[in-house]
């Protein structure tokens, strides 16, 4: 379901592994991909889509792949969910008109669409990481990207009844973030991240890319494997330009 330059996230992960001599194979998960192939993955990425494609993929996800991805995330397999996929891993999506559309229920969050007449949340965004993403050495605590969403996402459906396990990823400095109201952007649950940032997210935020890679290695080999440092001067230059 690639729209909005989602491929950039894949290219980024692939190259950063390649440059370190980490062998990585990308499997494109389509409607036709069998579940066992999905289960063999060490890192999951899911991006946005046009409504029509999303509906097709959504039905498939909810009934077949969603429960598998949920189990994998629970086990600690790192994953990145962006835009529509971010909305989809929550409890539900409430359209302006009509019934709630159930989500995969992986993250404790939900999304509400305030109506077609309401302005979409569009523009460059800068946010400061509020979650401790350990195992990453980074120069900056910010993340940068571009957001374009109609739906507003809220974390922790019922904060009183449980310990909030799903935490916000970052605090918005410039832009809207999850809903343009509470000042938060994205979500973190176990080793998985959800975010409205495309742009795409990873190339200009190499610290996030490396965190995902590190977590994937840790899960696969059962121990922390330090990542070799790369020359990220261009990455941070592109990052800093947006601050």
């Amino acid at each position: 379901m690639s729209t909005y330059g989602d491929r950039g996230n894949i290219i980024c992960l692939e190259k950063r592994c390649e440059w370190r001599g980490i062998e990585a194979r990308v499997t494109q998960v389509t409607l036709e991909t069998p579940v066992r192939e999905l289960k063999s993955c060490d890192l999951i990425f899911m991006g946005g889509a046009q409504d029509r494609q999303q509906k097709l993929a959504g039905d498939d996800f909810l009934h077949h792949k969603g429960p598998v991805v949920k189990a994998m995330v629970e086990q600690g397999v790192p994953a990145l969910f962006v835009c529509a996929a971010y909305q989809f891993v929550g409890h539900y999506y409430q359209p302006y008109q009509g019934d709630k559309i159930p989500g995969a229920g992986i993250f404790d969050l939900y999304t509400v669409h305030p109506g077609d007449q309401k302005k979409r949340l569009i523009g460059n965004v800068v946010a400061e990481l509020s979650c401790q993403l350990s195992a990453v050495s980074c120069q900056l605590k910010t993340i940068v990207g571009f957001e374009n969403h109609g739906g507003k996402t809220y974390l922790n459906e019922n904060p009183k009844s449980q310990i909030p396990m799903t935490k916000p990823l970052a605090k918005v400095i410039k832009g809207f973030g999850n809903n343009g109201e509470d000042g938060y952007e994205g979500a973190v649950y176990k080793n998985s991240i959800g975010s409205y940032f495309h742009g795409p997210l990873l190339p200009k935020n190499p610290h996030i890319a490396d965190w995902l890679i590190a977590k994937a290695l840790e899960m696969k080999y059962g121990k922390i494997i330090p990542l070799e440092n790369l020359d990220d001067s261009l990455e941070w230059q592109a990052h800093s330009q947006m601050l």
Binding site: S2, Y4, G5, D6, R7, G8, I11, I122, G123, N124, F146, N148, H198, G199, P200, P203
Partner: peptide, 8 residues
């Protein structure tokens, strides 16, 4: 305003 498309 969105330059994401260069990745495509």
């Amino acid at each position: 305003r969105d330059v994401s498309w260069i990745w495509d």
